[in-house]
Design a binder for these strands. Structure first.
Lengths: 208, 208
DNA sequence: TTAAAATGTGAGGATATCCTCACTTTTTCT
DNA sequence: AGAAAAAGTGAGGATATCCTCACATTTTAA
């Protein structure tokens, strides 16, 4: 989990030695764990530092603000997700709508399972105006748009954009279902959402 | 994180005179406004009391906790929504999937516009474990299940339940789109989501 | 009228969080 | 070795929130 992107919530002091980079990585990991357990608001800088085995001052050396910490994490997630989407797009030529839908749902679900803090941050972004800069959504939309371009050749640019928004919302719904605890019939519901996505994709590529 | 009594959401002292009821109504309204402007976490009890023109002590007289306040608001919203869903179900016999989808999206969208705090609370419930008791989702699911029963007679009970979950998620997605600020092509995206819902509903009622 | 019940008040205690800063320790480089 | 740069430390200041409590005011009913 490297700090791939530059300074949008710039580190007060960027790490320049190896130890610094390791510390930053440990801090980000601890932050992710705390965000998952307590949510963005509930997580405390003191708690994050403690979990990383660092002093509070160390944390503030690299991240001047809780918000900067969250933004750094989100940027890393956005990078990873965009790459995965591109890889999927490259392989998706000729797939049926059903298969494409299944792969898309699977991709986001697996990512969420691997990085639970991603969901926590996405939820927090809805409430916290400070996190509105996340731009994860925009990057995902663009990735999806490029993916869809190959599957619905007849669509105008505006329609393609709208379709990307729709597909993203459907994927998000599937991910939300995955996070709902103790919902009876979750598997069936997930299959239903996947079906809805497949139907929509098929409708998209059908010659009007 | 101070919490005096673990009285789950009950008013410390229920209003018994007319003035008490008016005050409670004013406090709830002020709370809704604050939740919209600052979010559940950002809203403060002091701010809510001030906005209602009441002293902080008055607020705590009726709502022992911020959580109790939110739960009371949410209960009112759940009641209203359930009623509206039932009214829609009563009129929906014979509707095409397209029309049903349009009406469902319209219903939730209008509710969200009329009661913006509903969305704020729904978002907060995802993060705040204290609000997990909301149960709004469960009641909506049940309402939808009954509505769908008339439109897909062949379905088993478990399938009906799953379908209700799917439809609720699709409606939520549509509502989320409505709240996204400054998204270009929002109308087109909304139409796309409605189309996905219609396709899913049609697929549901098609004889397998 | 008058006492009891309901409602209203706001200063302040308890607690919690964010973040600073003066300082120490470790690493790098000449 | 020695100096400079980077990384590390944690007590505490500033601030903010939740909620209590002892008491004042208004309404109801006998």
């Amino acid at each position: 989990m490297r700090n791939a992107s530059q300074n949008s919530g710039a580190a007060r002091r960027a790490p320049r030695r190896r130890r610094g980079h390791e510390r930053v990585a440990a801090l980000l990991e601890a932050a992710a764990a705390c965000f998952v357990e307590k949510g963005y608001d509930g997580a405390t800088m003191t708690g994050i530092a403690a979990r990383a085995g660092a002093a509070i001052g160390s944390l503030y050396q690299f991240f001047p603000t809780k918000e900067a910490l969250a933004l750094a994490l989100a940027a890393a997630y956005a990078d990873a997700l965009e790459r995965q989407l591109q890889r999927l797009a490259a392989r998706s030529a000729g797939w049926t709508p059903e298969h494409l839908a299944a792969q898309l749902v699977r991709l986001l679900g697996a990512f969420r399972r691997r990085h639970p803090a991603f969901a926590a941050l996405a939820e927090a972004a809805a409430t916290q105006p400070a996190l509105r800069t996340l731009a994860v959504r925009r990057r995902l939309r663009e990735g999806l748009r490029e993916l869809l371009r190959g599957h619905a050749p007849g669509l105008a640019e505006a329609e393609l954009q709208a379709a990307a928004v729709v597909v993203l919302q459907l994927m998000k719904a599937a991910v939300a279902l995955g996070g709902e605890p103790g919902l009876s019939g979750r598997r069936a519901a997930l299959a239903g959402l996947e079906r809805a996505l497949a139907l929509y994709l098929a409708d998209l590529s059908r010659p009007a």
